[in-house]
């Protein structure tokens, strides 16, 4: 009796609210479509356009309509040793900087996971580098790396003028860029790891302690698996961002010395804008796109597996 009464009243309410307001279906559309339309207009249309341009010899500053050249742009790019070297540079850069960021960021998170007086302030302060504009950071680190009056070599203990020229030596320049990137973005990894760490319930550690599990065992079997999903998100975002690195290199080295820090994104900009080879740049952009979508697909699959497992 009583049950029936409640059910009746519920139906009543539902019917009334349906009359007065938007249905869930309409609301869903209203909520979703602005975002999807914007993203499609600004991503899919341009990409289709540049797919077409990649088969032409178009130059955005020439007053000549695009001329179909078939696969010539792609052949030129894939047959060029130079571009392979830029891809290698980029790969090395991504592995080095994301790897180091993961280690440093996770380490920082372990250091800061237990609250102590001032830990909140310290966490916030450590986050400052990642708020800075990469182009500004790049320019400014040029001063820090300066071999004669920079503070970097000085802090490493070299006397003035005796330390290495980090950005002027082809073998070191890549490390110079990696160090700055690690300085900037380890805090990002830290932030996500901290979130993961603080979600681990204490009773897991208490249980491990009762079982007299070793510190390493506890880390491997409790800490790491619990942080893994958020750590993977951090690595995913950082890998993608590192692949796109443009600002930092423009500020620090401009691709030099020689082409030791010329990353694909920097070279792409060079071909597209100062050189105005729009067709060829579109082709290279498509190659980069395929690589990036491939890499991120692997990560997202991995991410989903972790989430479900």
């Amino acid at each position: 009796m009583a049950k029936e009464h409640v059910a009746l009243r519920n139906r009543d309410v539902v019917r009334r609210s349906n009359r007065q307001s938007l249905s869930d279906e309409t609301l869903k559309r209203l909520f979703l479509w602005p975002t999807l339309i914007l993203l499609i207009t600004f991503n899919i249309f341009p990409l289709l356009y540049s797919l077409y341009l990649s088969f032409t010899d178009f130059s955005a500053i020439a007053n000549v309509p695009p001329n179909w050249v078939g696969l010539r742009n792609y052949q030129e790019i894939l047959g060029s040793d130079q571009l392979w070297r830029y891809f290698q540079n980029t790969g090395r850069y991504v592995v080095l900087s994301v790897g180091l960021q993961t280690l440093v960021g996770f380490g920082l998170a372990l250091l800061l996971r237990r609250r102590f007086a001032g830990s909140g302030l310290i966490t916030t302060i450590i986050l400052v580098p990642m708020m800075l504009s990469p182009i500004v950071v790049g320019l400014f680190w040029k001063l820090i790396y300066n071999p004669s009056y920079g503070i970097f070599n000085y802090m490493l203990g070299f006397s003035a003028g005796r330390g290495p020229d980090w950005l002027g030596t082809p073998q070191l320049a890549m490390w110079g860029v990696v160090i700055v990137d690690v300085w900037m973005w380890s805090p990002y990894v830290m932030l996500l790891c901290l979130a993961g760490l603080s979600a681990i319930p204490d009773y897991l550690y208490e249980a491990a302690e009762i079982d007299r599990a070793s510190g390493w065992y506890t880390f491997r079997r409790i800490t790491l698996p619990m942080v893994a999903p958020l750590l993977m998100i951090a690595i995913l975002f950082r890998t993608i961002e590192a692949f796109k690195t443009f600002d930092l290199v423009m500020g620090l080295t401009g691709g030099g010395p020689g082409d030791s820090t010329e990353l694909v994104a920097v070279n792409l900009y060079r071909i597209a804008f100062p050189q105005w080879q729009t067709g060829k740049a579109s082709a290279l952009a498509y190659i980069v796109l395929v690589v990036i979508i491939g890499v991120s697909n692997i990560y997202i699959r991995y991410l989903n597996r972790i989430k479900e497992g």
Binding site: T35, L39, N43, F45, Y49, A60, K244, A265, I292, I293
Partner: peptide, 29 residues
Amino acid sequence: VKATNDWQFFILSTRMLPPVVITIPIFLM
């Protein structure tokens, strides 16, 4: 949402594009 995972992947993938990749056509547009 229909094909919700695909949409979400699409949304995330727009962020993966290096700016210069979409800037070329957007510049012309």
